[in-house]
Amino acid sequence: MFEAKMLQSSVLKKIIESLKDLFSDANFDCSSSGITLQDMDSSHVALCYLKLRSDEEGFEDYRCDRNITLGVNLVLMSKILKCAGNDDVITLRAEDEPNILTFIFDSKNGERVSKYDIKLMEIDSELLGIPDTEYSCVVKMPSHEFQRICSNLSQLGDSVTVDCHKEGVDFKVAGEQGSGAIKLKQNTTVDKEEDQVSVELNEAVTQSFALKFLCAFTKATSLSDTVSLSLTQDTPIVVEYPIAQHGYLRFYLAPKIEE
């Protein structure tokens, strides 16, 4: 038996909303330590990795007697989650050899209980081994700032060049009709930690990425006040949104390589 009771249905809603356009079908791997999801987009350029730890406070109850994989169409799941109120407590439930995933939404006042079942799918997805490496540069910034940068620069071109150096980070776009550049200076003196821009630099990195994917990743902005970008030359960028009281959602994007 698998049963996970999440105190905030809005968290799961936001996760699925941020994933469903790039990653339509995905396997939720459930174990006693929590729920993970790894999926590639159809062009095999981007990868998402979600981790929700069972021992974090976001779960009121968590039980997973044996490891199970729940193959779910995320577009359908998003439709089901739209039936839940933002403050509802949400319970996910499945048997040990499941064909069905059950969603139970309990309203805060206890007056309404909704139950939805969806059929599970057999999804043959390739799991990749993501190496645990140290990155040359880690930039932490307000998540809405990153969203704005991606959105602004995507008006002018398809790819952004991210240039991390010791003063800060530059985002540049050069399109056929014009070009743009946004410089972010390191700023760790502002009061609120979530408003800070910090750059941990071991080595300078200059790398180009497709804006289409970065813009898609920023659909996760409402999950977290901050986002971190981890870069190493000629390797995928990691865009990580911490999820309070649960874990994190990471996106990996393969770089554009100069010919």
């Binding site: 590639m40 062009s43 095999h44 350029v45 981007a46 990868l47 390739e126 799991l127 990749l128 081994g129 993501i130 190496p131 790819s159 060049t161 050069a174 180009s208 497709a210 390797t235 995928p236 990996y252 994007l253 393969a254 770089p255 554009k256 390589i257 100069e258 010919e259």
Partner: peptide
């Protein structure tokens, strides 16, 4: 600018 690489080129299949 540049050629789009695949994520599978960086992370091994498990």
């Amino acid at each position: 600018k540049g050629t789009q690489s695949k994520i599978t080129a960086f992370f091994p299949s498990e």
